[in-house]
Simulated scan of single mutants.
Amino acid sequence: MISIVSIADRPDLVPVTGKWRWEAFFKDEMSLDEMLRLEQECASSSELMPTVLVMLEGEYPVGMIALCLDDLEGRPDLNPWLAGVYVDPRYRGNGYALRLIEELEGLARNQGIKRLSLYTGNATGLYHRAGWAMTETVQRKGRPYSVMQKNL
């Protein structure tokens, strides 16, 4: 059975989500310990942003997604952000990323958010399938990234 929970409700998942996020997105920017500390702060926050959702198959974590502010430095005009989409490699190809995206969009919509932004280096196809539109290309650390948005 698939379920989606917040790390605010399941802080025991912080070591898993922190490690995933560090390995996939922050390995070159901070230590794993720093990432785990930030993930714990997120789990302890009562604010909407940041929110980290985790997909569980039974009780086993298989993927995650985040809602946050200021994901792309210097672009507060694009807030808020869908970020940190990650599915464990053993579970990819099952549509889990799309389900996580839909869940986060629903959460944002229910909180009165009218538009979300994201940036990606290699997953534009996934986000196009979820109804997102590319709005611009930016350079980050010498690599091109697509900025995408979706009106909710």
Score class of each variant (00 low, 15 high):
T135V: 13
Y91L: 02
M30C: 09
D70L: 09
E47K: 15
R129G: 00
E41K: 15
M134G: 11
N94G: 12
V14W: 08
L78Y: 09
W22T: 03
E57K: 15
D28F: 02
L152H: 04
M55R: 03
V62H: 01
A133D: 07
Q139G: 09
M30E: 10
D12Y: 08
I2Y: 05
L116V: 04
L32S: 09
M55C: 12
Y91G: 06
A24R: 15
D12H: 11
E41L: 13
T17N: 11
D33L: 11
M134K: 14
R140G: 07
V52D: 01
A133P: 00
E102N: 09
R92L: 05
M134N: 02
E47S: 15
T137M: 06
M134F: 00
C68L: 13
G18P: 04
S6Q: 05
R75S: 00
V62L: 06
A123L: 15
Y96Q: 11
A43K: 14
M1V: 12
Y60P: 00
E29V: 14
Q40K: 13
S46P: 09
D71L: 11
D88A: 13
E105Y: 03
P15S: 09
R90H: 10
A83P: 00
C68A: 14
N122H: 14
F26T: 08
V85W: 04
I101S: 10
C42K: 14
E102I: 03
P11Q: 06
R140K: 13
L67N: 06
K150H: 00
V14F: 11
E136D: 06
V138K: 14
L56V: 02
V85Q: 06
A133M: 12
D33R: 15
C68G: 06
A83M: 02
E39L: 11
G93T: 04
L100D: 10
E136Y: 02
D28S: 11
R99Y: 00
V14C: 12
G58S: 11
A133V: 10
A123C: 07
D71Y: 07
G131H: 01
L98K: 15
N151R: 15
R21F: 11
W81I: 05
W20Y: 01
I65D: 03
D9R: 12
A130N: 01
S46R: 14
N79G: 04
N79Y: 08
N122D: 14
P50T: 05
